[in-house]
Amino acid sequence: LDITFHVDGKNIHVHGASEEVVRIIEELIKNNARAEEIKETLERLLR
Score class of each variant (00 low, 15 high):
residue 22 V to K: 06
residue 47 R to V: 12
residue 4 T to Y: 12
residue 9 G to C: 03
residue 43 E to M: 15
residue 23 R to F: 12
residue 10 K to W: 15
residue 5 F to E: 02
residue 9 G to M: 02
residue 8 D to N: 08
residue 47 R to T: 13
residue 29 I to G: 00
residue 18 S to K: 05
residue 40 E to W: 14
residue 8 D to F: 06
residue 28 L to P: 00
residue 4 T to V: 11
residue 24 I to A: 09
residue 46 L to Q: 04
residue 16 G to M: 05
residue 12 I to G: 01
residue 31 N to K: 11
residue 33 A to Q: 05
residue 20 E to S: 09
residue 36 E to A: 10
residue 40 E to H: 12
residue 1 L to W: 12
residue 6 H to Q: 11
residue 24 I to Y: 10
residue 17 A to G: 03
residue 3 I to P: 06
residue 42 L to H: 00
residue 42 L to R: 00
residue 40 E to M: 14
residue 10 K to I: 15
residue 17 A to P: 03
residue 23 R to T: 06
residue 13 H to P: 03
residue 25 I to K: 00
residue 3 I to L: 11
residue 1 L to Q: 11
residue 15 H to E: 06
residue 18 S to I: 04
residue 46 L to N: 03
residue 37 E to T: 10
residue 8 D to A: 06
residue 13 H to D: 04
residue 20 E to H: 09
residue 29 I to V: 06
residue 13 H to M: 08
residue 45 L to H: 03
residue 13 H to V: 11
residue 3 I to T: 04
residue 7 V to I: 12
residue 6 H to S: 10
residue 41 T to K: 08
residue 43 E to S: 15
residue 30 K to V: 08
residue 38 I to E: 01
residue 35 A to I: 14
residue 39 K to N: 10
residue 25 I to H: 00
residue 6 H to P: 09
residue 7 V to M: 04
residue 15 H to G: 04
residue 17 A to L: 08
residue 3 I to E: 02
residue 27 E to K: 10
residue 5 F to T: 03
residue 26 E to F: 15
residue 47 R to N: 14
residue 41 T to W: 12
residue 20 E to Y: 15
residue 25 I to A: 01
residue 7 V to S: 03
residue 46 L to V: 05
residue 31 N to T: 09
residue 19 E to Y: 15
residue 46 L to K: 04
residue 41 T to C: 06
residue 42 L to F: 03
residue 16 G to W: 06
residue 33 A to S: 08
residue 4 T to W: 12
residue 37 E to R: 09
residue 36 E to M: 09
residue 43 E to I: 15
residue 12 I to L: 08
residue 22 V to G: 03
residue 2 D to T: 12
residue 33 A to L: 06
residue 31 N to Y: 10
residue 26 E to R: 14
residue 42 L to G: 00
residue 35 A to C: 07
residue 17 A to I: 13
residue 44 R to A: 08
residue 43 E to A: 15
residue 31 N to V: 07
residue 30 K to F: 13
residue 3 I to Y: 15
residue 21 V to N: 03
residue 44 R to S: 07
residue 20 E to T: 07
residue 9 G to Q: 02
residue 12 I to Q: 01
residue 43 E to Q: 15
residue 33 A to D: 03
residue 38 I to Y: 03
residue 4 T to A: 06
residue 27 E to D: 13
residue 34 R to D: 10
residue 47 R to E: 09
residue 12 I to C: 05
residue 22 V to F: 09
residue 36 E to P: 07
residue 42 L to E: 00
residue 36 E to V: 08
residue 34 R to N: 11
residue 11 N to Q: 14
residue 16 G to E: 04
residue 8 D to K: 04
residue 2 D to H: 14
residue 44 R to Y: 14
residue 40 E to A: 13
residue 41 T to H: 08
residue 27 E to R: 11
residue 10 K to F: 15
residue 22 V to S: 03
residue 45 L to M: 07
residue 36 E to W: 14
residue 3 I to K: 06
residue 16 G to P: 01
residue 43 E to C: 13
residue 17 A to Y: 02
residue 25 I to D: 00
residue 19 E to T: 12
residue 19 E to D: 11
residue 24 I to H: 08
residue 36 E to G: 08
residue 23 R to L: 08
residue 22 V to M: 06
residue 32 N to Q: 11
residue 33 A to I: 08
residue 35 A to R: 05
residue 20 E to F: 12
residue 34 R to A: 11
residue 14 V to N: 00
residue 47 R to D: 10
residue 14 V to C: 02
residue 47 R to G: 14
residue 9 G to E: 03
residue 35 A to D: 04
residue 22 V to P: 00
residue 28 L to Q: 04
residue 3 I to S: 02
residue 45 L to R: 01
residue 46 L to W: 11
residue 39 K to E: 14
residue 33 A to N: 04
residue 20 E to R: 07
residue 4 T to H: 10
residue 11 N to K: 12
residue 45 L to W: 09
residue 6 H to G: 04
residue 26 E to M: 15
residue 10 K to Y: 14
residue 30 K to S: 09
residue 24 I to C: 02
residue 27 E to I: 11
residue 9 G to K: 01
residue 4 T to D: 09
residue 43 E to L: 15
residue 21 V to W: 12
residue 40 E to I: 12
residue 17 A to R: 01
residue 23 R to K: 10
residue 8 D to V: 02
residue 4 T to C: 06
residue 24 I to Q: 08
residue 29 I to S: 01
residue 37 E to N: 07
residue 28 L to Y: 05
residue 26 E to H: 13
residue 32 N to Y: 12
residue 4 T to K: 04
residue 6 H to K: 10
residue 31 N to A: 10
residue 44 R to F: 14
residue 20 E to G: 07
residue 40 E to V: 12
residue 20 E to D: 11
residue 24 I to M: 08
residue 14 V to S: 02
residue 43 E to K: 14
residue 37 E to M: 12
residue 14 V to W: 08
residue 28 L to K: 05
residue 2 D to I: 11
residue 37 E to H: 11
residue 40 E to Y: 15
residue 42 L to T: 01
residue 27 E to G: 10
residue 17 A to W: 03
residue 3 I to H: 12
residue 5 F to H: 03
residue 42 L to M: 07
residue 19 E to V: 12
residue 25 I to P: 00
residue 5 F to Q: 03
residue 19 E to S: 11
residue 43 E to H: 15
residue 18 S to P: 09
residue 28 L to D: 00
residue 14 V to F: 06
residue 16 G to K: 06
residue 22 V to Y: 09
residue 7 V to E: 03
residue 17 A to M: 04
residue 1 L to N: 09
residue 43 E to Y: 15
residue 45 L to P: 00
residue 15 H to T: 10
residue 5 F to M: 05
residue 8 D to Y: 07
residue 9 G to T: 01
residue 32 N to H: 12
residue 37 E to G: 03
residue 27 E to S: 11
residue 28 L to E: 01
residue 15 H to Q: 09
residue 38 I to G: 00
residue 18 S to D: 07
residue 45 L to S: 01
residue 11 N to T: 14
residue 10 K to C: 07
residue 4 T to R: 07
residue 37 E to Y: 14
residue 44 R to G: 04
residue 25 I to G: 00
residue 41 T to Y: 10
residue 27 E to L: 13
residue 45 L to K: 01
residue 41 T to R: 08
residue 26 E to P: 00
residue 32 N to L: 08
residue 7 V to G: 02
residue 41 T to S: 08
residue 15 H to P: 04
residue 41 T to D: 02
residue 1 L to F: 13
residue 18 S to C: 02
residue 45 L to A: 03
residue 39 K to H: 12
residue 5 F to N: 02
residue 23 R to Q: 09
residue 28 L to C: 02
residue 24 I to L: 09
residue 7 V to C: 06
residue 10 K to A: 13
residue 24 I to R: 08
residue 3 I to C: 06
residue 5 F to S: 03
residue 26 E to Y: 15
residue 4 T to L: 05
residue 40 E to T: 12
residue 9 G to F: 03
residue 23 R to D: 04
residue 31 N to W: 08
residue 21 V to M: 10
residue 42 L to I: 12
residue 29 I to E: 00
residue 28 L to M: 13
residue 43 E to D: 10
residue 24 I to N: 04
residue 5 F to Y: 04
residue 24 I to T: 09
residue 21 V to Y: 05
residue 22 V to W: 10
residue 40 E to F: 14
residue 35 A to S: 10
residue 32 N to W: 12
residue 47 R to F: 14
residue 36 E to L: 09
residue 23 R to Y: 11
residue 17 A to H: 01
residue 41 T to V: 12
residue 14 V to G: 02
residue 9 G to Y: 02
residue 29 I to R: 02
residue 20 E to I: 06
residue 45 L to Q: 01
residue 30 K to I: 07
residue 18 S to F: 04
residue 24 I to D: 02
residue 28 L to R: 03
residue 1 L to I: 14
